[in-house]
């Protein structure tokens, strides 16, 4: 299954609205202008496709924040964070005054990243709910670390497909420069596409 030109256009628009909302919240949190690029959207049907699209190695350890969706849209959203990006972001958030070592950093980092992941996911989900005029309930965010391929495998579930959304993100005055990657489980992807088709057909 491939996205038609209309579906591609609609999902990019949807992603752009969601990520812009997230950027607005992040700009308040970081007290800095957040620059975002045009999102890239792809429907991937196997682990290799996702890995290639993300330009990571499959065995790479990645951090992620995930939230379950229920209501009119059911499934799972995963926000991927490359460890290098998260370290940079984390140190920027806390400032150079807090240079911590070892175990403790990880506990703080997980906490901060869960909050950031929550901001990004809920911004995207609320934009979707607005645009699709649907009610979506979201679970509380969970943090996890896993091999990239295992994580995608889990996200694919039985339907063997995910909607992958990526967008570059930079903070204007800080050395924060990374890529937001959101993976929607196939069930969500199909429902979003169906809603998008209803909109584009109207």
């Amino acid at each position: 299954m491939r996205l038609s030109a209309e579906e591609q256009d609609a999902t990019v628009e949807l992603a752009n609205i969601g990520i812009s909302r997230a950027a607005r919240q992040l700009s308040v949190l970081l007290d800095d202008e957040i620059r975002i690029g045009t999102p890239d959207v792809a429907l991937c049907e196997n682990v290799d496709e996702v890995v290639t699209a993300l330009s990571h190695r499959p065995e790479e350890e990645v951090a992620c924040v995930y939230q379950r969706l229920s209501g009119e849209l059911t499934g799972q959203v995963v926000l991927l964070l490359a460890p290098r990006d998260t370290h940079a972001l984390f140190h920027n958030l806390l400032g150079d005054g807090v240079m911590l070592h070892g175990i403790d950093v990880r506990a703080f980092e997980h906490e901060a990243m869960t909050e950031l992941g929550n901001i990004i996911i809920s911004s995207c989900v609320s934009a979707m709910a607005d645009m699709l005029r649907q009610r979506i309930d979201v679970s509380i965010p969970r943090y996890s670390e896993a091999r990239l391929d295992d994580l995608i495998e889990d996200g694919m579930g039985a339907s063997r497909a995910v909607l992958l959304i990526q967008a570059p993100l930079q903070a204007a005055q800080r050395e924060v420069d990374g890529v937001i990657a959101l993976i929607f489980s196939a069930s969500v992807a199909h429902q979003v596409l169906a809603a998008v088709r209803r909109i584009t057909a109207s």
């Binding site: 939230q67 909050e115 989900v125 009610r135």
Partner: peptide, 16 residues
């Protein structure tokens, strides 16, 4: 705002 606009539960971490 985000929670009221359908973004689901929100957290404010002690770290940040």
């Amino acid at each position: 705002d985000q929670a009221l606009q359908g973004g689901g539960p929100q957290i404010l971490s002690q770290t940040l």
